[in-house]
């Protein structure tokens, strides 16, 4: 394993972050993306690699609540941050309303884009904002899906947003 890069700089570093609420401390190669670290070292294989250039969105994780493409995000930048992967949503096997909406609406086909889209939708729901149909499509346009034509994904996202809205109305903060 290389320990120095071409410029002779030490190429390893300690990374501290939380992943799905648990503290993680790990030595990484500074060339590794957050995707590499999550998948290869920490076995969060729900994070998918589709393009490696930040185009398809399959590698999306929430970083302090914001969706990012983990394939073009160096792991070292995640130092001190909170990462949520698809594995971190359901608690004790109970699906979140967003996950339930995706299953029920038939928004899942091959499932490879699903973790990323579900996380982006989760961030939309968590934002507490209202979205028009066009805004939902725009918010999700960073996720390439080749199976569904997006219709049922948009339906699932809108259902999750609608239900969260109703829930918010019923339990005003």
């Amino acid at each position: 394993m290389l320990t120095k890069n071409a410029a002779g700089v030490k190429a390893r570093k300690r990374l501290c972050m939380t992943v799905n609420g648990r503290a993680v401390e790990i030595e990484i190669d500074i060339r590794e993306s957050l995707l590499d670290v999550l998948r290869d070292r920490l076995q969060f294989t729900g994070v998918k690699q589709g393009c490696s250039v930040g185009e398809c969105g399959a590698c999306t994780v929430l970083l302090d609540g914001t969706p990012v493409n983990s394939c073009i995000y160096l792991a070292t930048w995640a130092h001190g941050k909170a990462v949520v992967t698809i594995e971190g949503l359901a608690q004790d096997g109970k699906l979140t309303p967003v996950q339930e909406a995706f299953v029920d609406e038939g928004a899942i086909q091959c499932g490879f884009c699903t973790p990323g889209v579900v996380l982006s939708t989760t961030a939309m729901v968590d934002s507490g904002k209202c979205f028009t149909h066009d805004e939902v499509r725009r918010e999700l346009s960073g996720h390439l899906c080749r199976c569904t034509g997006y219709q049922k994904i948009v339906d699932a996202a809108e259902r999750a947003l609608r239900e969260a809205d109703i829930a918010a109305d019923e339990h005003p903060v």
Binding site: T85, E87, L95, Q99, G111
Partner: peptide, 9 residues
């Protein structure tokens, strides 16, 4: 297999 796919498992 929808549940496994949405759980990331």
């Amino acid at each position: 297999e929808g549940r496994a796919k949405v759980l990331g498992t």
